[in-house]
């Protein structure tokens, strides 16, 4: 059994405490995330995903319930210690740069945390290497592409050697290449380290990469499961404002056209193989 890293118990949060007729942004939500997992939190706009992110890093505190991180209930006293273990990357790459060069920017948080100079230099180099940005050490962050900027933001986050990396819609403003760059870096980090990754997203191809998906709807936890378990719900997801992976969409359309398929397919490869074995290879 893996050890717990974040656990929410019956957490409720509302932005408008005085107005009782408005539903809470997060309503009685409980879940546990284990060390080394990649968990995607998905849901429509306004489903409570981003509020959950803010509750997990102590930007907000719940009115009801508790948020436990590394086994301790998050409060004003342990907030800073906890946050130093948690790297965050936000949606807009332009809003999170402070340094004049890539390496200054990555060094910023280390300096803030009083890391000795010698060690800082080493960590900065290593982190930038991990996100494949070594040839841009002295570039100005504002001259980078969106994907490169988010990779630098990830380098800044992992330089602190956090146990958790929280990506709050970190790919939603990127072009397709930028998104792919960022996701492949996250995959690589996960192979090399036992970093826990929590990604908040409505990109379903991104959610497919996770070990587990937590699906939010109107502030409530709607479902939890492996990507397969979640996506097999099919039309239900569409009704909740989400989408299905490409291969599933095409499968559904093929069935509508009277084409029989042997199973549900999440990946294009599976679907191509099914088409081949059941329809052409006769």
């Amino acid at each position: 059994m893996k050890s717990e890293i974040i656990s929410l118990q019956e957490v409720t949060f509302t932005y408008t405490e005085e107005e009782k007729n408005i539903r809470p942004a997060v309503d009685n939500v409980s879940f546990t995330i284990y060390e080394g997992e990649w968990v995607a939190i998905v849901g429509h706009n306004g489903s409570g995903k981003s509020t959950l992110a803010r509750l997990m890093n102590g930007l907000l505190f719940p009115q009801k319930g508790t948020v436990r991180i590394f086994g301790e209930t998050l409060n004003e006293q342990n907030l800073w210690e906890t946050r130093s273990q948690m790297g965050m990357v936000f949606q807009n790459p332009d809003n999170q740069f402070v340094g004049a060069t890539v390496q200054d920017d990555v060094a910023f948080a280390l300096e803030n945390n009083g890391i000795p100079f010698e060690e800082m230099v080493e960590r900065v180099q290593q982190s930038i290497e991990k996100v494949n940005m070594s040839s841009f050490m002295n570039s100005e962050p504002h001259h980078l592409s969106g994907g490169q900027k988010q990779r630098v933001a990830i380098a800044g986050a992992i330089a602190l050697q956090p146990r958790i990396l929280l990506l709050d819609e970190a790919t939603s403003m990127l072009d397709p290449q930028g998104r792919e760059e960022v996701l492949s870096i996250v995959r690589k980090l996960r192979e090399e380290t036992d970093l826990t990754v929590i990604s908040i997203t409505h990109d379903l191809e991104e959610a497919l990469l996770a070990d587990r998906i937590i699906m939010m709807n109107q502030g409530e936890k709607y479902a939890v499961g492996s990507p397969e378990e979640i996506f097999l719900r099919g039309q239900e997801l569409v009704d909740l404002g989400l989408d299905l992976p490409f291969a599933m969409n095409v499968s559904r359309l093929l069935r509508d056209q009277g084409i029989e398929l042997v199973a549900e397919h999440m990946s294009e490869e599976e679907l191509v193989n099914d088409l081949w074995t059941s329809h052409f290879n006769k």
Binding site: F246, V250, L254, Q257, G258, I259, V272
Partner: peptide, 28 residues
Amino acid sequence: FQKKVEQMMGKKLPTICLTEEKLAEELA
């Protein structure tokens, strides 16, 4: 995806399918 299917079948669809609906129709 159309290209992958075409490669697997060894033949081409008569047109480039710009939407998933069109692709399903042509494959069917």
